[in-house]
């Protein structure tokens, strides 16, 4: 696989992994975090520092990134997850920017705004693909369990959820920890592909883009989120010929989706192997008929 396509695959999969986690949070509890780029940064820097400064092997660096992102997620979640939805969104936006500012403010430790170079390039196409599939499966499994039902109950009616003994705060803590862990994993995978990271890569535009992906994909559809993540990663490449105009087209697509499909492209519809097979049969069946005629 050429470098160009490997790069595209890595960036796409990084988006998918964060989206899977963020979908769990937004689609599960209704809370929107505008600070996930900060957790990408935490993952990227944790693994980057562990592997360069302490010479930890790549798998341990990834694990460290996941664990530390989850711990920060729990610490941030403790005071913020009890807030109303709009305040949680604002608080996380602040947290994301604070993480970035903190990384810039510690040049001796993190390299500051100059960045952290020389991270070993370990993220291969197979590693990123495998971890992407694992992430999606974990989120799907969570949603298909009693925890998924609890999350949906919290999203639709927190009061009624409490009345059936759901510990709303604890459930949100678990979900936010998973969301942040996946963001950390994605950040680490990114760092070990591009080998150089600096704080400007993880600004709040990035956080907003990630939230946009979930909303475009559909708040009730994990496969919708995954599809949107792929689309958002690939669209700028497809539109590369259009240069400056591609951001215009991108914004237009997002706008049209929000206006004409406010539930997201997929709404509550989930792609399954059966539905994929049906689409495949339709396509091939149609082709055969055309061939016969």
């Amino acid at each position: 696989m050429s470098d160009y396509y490997t790069g595209l695959l890595v960036f796409t999969c990084v988006n998918i992994i964060v989206t899977a986690g963020l979908y769990l949070l937004i689609g599960g509890t209704g809370l929107v975090s505008f600070g996930q780029a900060g957790f990408l940064a935490i993952g990227a820097y944790t693994s980057g520092l562990l592997t360069t400064r302490l010479n930890w092997p790549f798998p341990l660096g990834l694990t460290g990134a996941i664990v530390f992102s989850m711990l920060v997620g729990v610490a941030i979640g403790y005071p913020t997850l009890k807030l109303r939805r709009e305040y949680f969104a604002l608080a996380t936006m602040g947290v994301g920017e604070a993480i970035r500012a903190l990384i810039s403010a510690l040049p001796n430790f993190t390299g500051g705004s100059v960045g952290l170079p020389g991270i070993p390039q370990k993220t291969t196409a197979w590693v990123v693909l495998l971890l992407t599939v694992v992430s999606i499966v974990l989120v799907r499994n969570y949603l298909k369990s009693k925890f998924g039902r609890n999350a949906l109950a919290i999203k639709t009616d927190e009061l009624a959820a409490k009345a059936i003994a759901v510990n709303v705060f604890a459930q949100k803590q678990i979900i936010f920890a998973i969301t942040c862990g996946l963001s950390g994993l994605a950040g680490a995978l990114l760092a070990h592909y591009i080998t150089y990271i600096d704080p400007s890569m993880f600004d709040w535009n990035r956080s907003a883009e990630l939230v946009t992906i979930v909303f475009v994909g559909g708040l009730g559809s994990l496969t919708g989120g995954v599809t949107a993540a792929i689309g958002v990663a690939l669209l700028p490449e497809v539109l590369r010929f259009a240069n400056e105009a591609r951001f215009l087209v991108y914004s237009l697509v997002v706008l049209l989706v929000i206006i004409y499909r406010p539930g997201g492209l997929f709404g509550n519809y989930e792609l399954s192997w059966q539905s994929l097979a049906r689409i495949w049969r339709k396509l091939t069946g149609g082709a055969r008929k055309e061939g016969a005629a």
Binding site: Y142, T156, D157
Partner: peptide, 28 residues
Amino acid sequence: RLFQGMSVLDNVRTALHRSLDYNVFHAL
């Protein structure tokens, strides 16, 4: 106050979460 969009069965099933003997790791 029902859980909007959930089936009748799932509305009731949700209330059984405490009697289901498995944890987050089992679920994941």
